[in-house]
């Protein structure tokens, strides 16, 4: 995906209806259920699941203004699950994931040597999470706000729209966040949880491999 440089104040990008988004091409990515049997050793019970991961497409627009990168996501979801009212209910969510190294495997959320960084939004939370993972089952959620990650979300006509925004360059190296730079190519992958379908953890839809992400100067 080409990520155009658009000279606008960062706050304008947070509006999914802003005119600037017309300058960014829509990426449409097919989603599929995660190959959950692959992680049977982490939960043979979860690995028995069959009906998860039914959201099959996500749309993405991405742009930057030289200081911040903004990712606009939207997908169809007939049920809005943004609160747990009963004990058997789950929450809608979406995440984008980036590799630290070219060897990081998106299927496993990286490994001990090749970690990944993800931005994770849940429909019941005001703030997103910044996630660091060294392989599936090792992920750690950090409060996104403390790491400069902001989100804007809305639900309309059976469709979620979620906007993530963060500085191209993260703060402290010790925080283990990915950095973006013009003319540098990295990768992105997508995941969606449908709370109405009891999606949670690895029970989700995902885009499979890394989509190339190229920031224009």
């Amino acid at each position: 995906m080409k990520v155009p440089y658009i000279k606008q104040h960062a706050d304008v990008f947070l509006d999914p209806n802003a005119g600037l988004w017309k300058k960014s091409a829509v990426g449409r990515f097919n989603l599929m259920p995660t190959p959950i049997k692959m992680i049977e050793h982490l939960s043979p019970f979860m690995a028995n699941s069959t009906e998860y991961g039914k959201v099959n497409q996500i749309e993405s627009r991405i742009a930057h203004n030289g200081a911040k990168i903004t990712i606009l996501l939207s997908w169809q979801d007939a049920t809005r699950n943004d609160a747990i009212r009963d004990l058997d209910q789950f929450i809608d969510g979406v995440a984008v994931m980036f590799p630290f190294t070219s060897n990081a495997n998106p299927l496993t959320m990286g490994d001990a040597e090749n970690p990944v960084n993800a931005w994770f939004w849940r429909a019941d939370k005001e703030e997103p999470y910044d996630v660091i993972a060294h392989g599936y089952g090792s992920s750690k959620r950090r409060i996104g706000k403390e790491l400069g990650l902001v989100v804007n979300s809305s639900y309309q006509d059976g469709r979620w729209t979620v906007v993530f925004q963060r500085a191209l360059r993260a703060g402290l190296i010790s925080h283990q966040q990915v950095n973006f730079a013009p003319d540098k190519v990295t990768g992105i992958s997508f995941a969606v949880w449908d709370g109405g379908n009891a999606d949670r953890a690895a029970q989700k839809s995902f885009s499979g491999g890394w989509e190339p992400l190229e920031l224009e100067a």
Partner: peptide, 14 residues
């Protein structure tokens, strides 16, 4: 020894 699928009790079940 195979893991068996299970359901979640609701608030009322609980």
């Amino acid at each position: 020894g195979n893991a068996q699928a299970g359901e979640l009790p609701s608030m009322v079940d609980s």
